[in-house]
Design a protein around this nucleic acid. Structure first.
Lengths: 113, 113
DNA sequence: TTGACATATTCCTATATGGGAATATATTTA
DNA sequence: TAAATATATTCCCATATAGGAATATGTCAA
């Protein structure tokens, strides 16, 4: 079996750095495809293809205005990722505490030694 | 160019559902490979291979005890994902507000009409 | 040392890319 | 209708899987 399709869910869709860049730009509001092409310095077909993936997994919405297509982020689609990563929040708090404690103990030992 | 390697960063690593399952289990503490094999009902080589990817991107740490290898989650590695998704938090708050407002307006309209 | 146990790696294959190039589709304007 | 503009899709290819099967490596027990 090959890797899951990028369109299988939001996790797979945002694994691609360019798509995260696109979403970062759309976080500031609606943008046309050409806006993204210019700002991200990517080829137009590339941007369109990435937007297609983001659309398929529900991470962006589109609106047509004349010849232009205006895309906006659908943040609700990112929420599951946020919720999942959040379940590890307590862990990194604890683990950092332990790292800090070890560092302090070490400093104490060396000042005493 | 093909898709980025699963070992290129945490985003790519956790795009695979099995790897998220593994991390979910490791969130509760250290587990041996066989523990994971039994709990997740996956083939042992499959678990080892997923753990290898997680290790390469720094999402888990290993400790040997006799013949067994005990893995634990390194939550720090998940933090960048949490931070990135967090930048969209204000958006889904706003967007939900708008959805709610529209729903209320619609309800009002229909009760008046 | 030999066998058993625990885990890791290699080999194989079907599949899904992401980018580049070319082309198709949709809409406005002359 | 034809030309121009904006965006989307298709075709091609090198590359990276994920899982299954087989095998290798490492460690303990007799």
């Amino acid at each position: 079996m090959a890797r899951a399709a990028t369109t299988s869910d939001a996790f797979n869709a945002v694994a691609e750095p360019r798509r995260r860049e696109i979403l970062d730009h759309l976080a500031s509001g609606e943008h046309s495809v050409n806006d993204l092409v210019i700002r991200l310095r990517l080829e137009q077909p590339s941007v369109s293809k990435h937007l297609r993936v983001l659309r398929d997994v529900g991470l962006v919405r589109v609106r047509r205005h004349g010849r232009q297509m205006f895309y906006q982020a659908n943040a609700e689609g990112i929420r599951p990722l946020h919720e999942w990563t959040k379940t590890f929040e307590r862990l990194w708090a604890h683990q950092l505490t332990r790292v800090k404690e070890r560092a302090e103990q070490k400093a104490k030992d060396s000042s005493e030694g």
